[in-house]
Design a protein around this nucleic acid. Structure first.
Lengths: 148, 148
DNA sequence: CGAATGTCTATAGAAATAGTAGAGTTACAC
DNA sequence: GTGTAACTCTACTATTTCTATAGACATTCG
């Protein structure tokens, strides 16, 4: 299970991706639109900002914007920032590798081998799907309606 | 990340799968061999027993045995018992479905759609891999040695 | 009988999760 | 240049989950 926080983060990003590229969106607006506790969302967006995913403008007329195009922001990237390692075992993590002190020899670990496959499969999806992909269905539905 | 408990459970099962089919293995032996805290392992095995994965014999010469053949026990099945749902979102869980109260309409949920793919990929691996598969490399190595 | 083994329930410390609170900083509008 | 609306940052807290540990109990074998 991913955390609630990660879900909030992803949803907040879809809102930013949906907004005009140079129109900052206020935290309150995102919170209201996605039913996210505002104060909690503040922390999340700040975190995403520190990791170079979004930028903010302070003061009146302030708000948040995507720092890079939505089609370059992957789900995997965001999950790593918010929830930490993607891998199901510490000894399979790319970003936070840690030896399992209870297994002797990773090559021999019967469990590790199986979860390596899980990790691969998961990463394949998470890093090939972007925020733009997430909002795409909505847009194509819109296009369909307009063309009708 | 899977829990330590699940890792212990899977490792304990590989020990049972490795043992003779009618020779109960004592908790202490499993614990020692896999460096699992004994009292913790007791709980885990009991849990697996209650879920019909293993059986036990009490008293002297007691211990645990697999209830069904190792090639019929999947990783997914064990993870569900020990760690709960496989799905990354409650609204994607097969065994513990729960509506997300903050998203309106699952068909529209942009996040859900992506994680459905993750869940599929994960399940594909976890339910097609068994305890027998996990110990297989070891056995084939053994075969290789014997044939050399 | 008695010792070895599993059974069961309770407890507890540590960490993670999901927020909440509030004082501080910045920038635009006037 | 002041006020106010926004983001910033740190700290705090309640709840749950994880990782065990403890100990009394039940069962079986010799």
């Amino acid at each position: 299970m991913i955390t609630q926080k990660a879900k909030y983060a992803l949803r907040a990003l879809t809102v930013l991706a949906d907004a005009d590229a140079d129109e900052p969106v206020m935290i309150s607006d995102i919170a209201a639109q996605q039913k996210i506790p505002k104060k909690f969302l503040e922390q999340i967006l700040l975190d995403l900002k520190h990791h170079g995913v979004v930028v903010s403008r302070r003061g009146k007329q302030g708000g948040y914007l995507l720092l890079k195009p939505a089609h370059t922001i992957t789900f995997g990237e965001i999950l790593r920032i918010i929830d930490g390692p993607i891998a199901p075992l510490p000894c399979l993590s790319i970003t936070a590798y840690r030896r399992c002190d209870d297994c002797d020899g990773e090559q021999n670990c019967q469990i590790r081998h199986v979860f390596a496959k899980v990790a691969d499969a998961t990463r394949k999806v998470l890093f090939s799907t972007t925020i733009a992909d997430a909002i795409a269905p909505k847009h194509s539905a819109e296009v369909t309606r307009l063309l009708a």
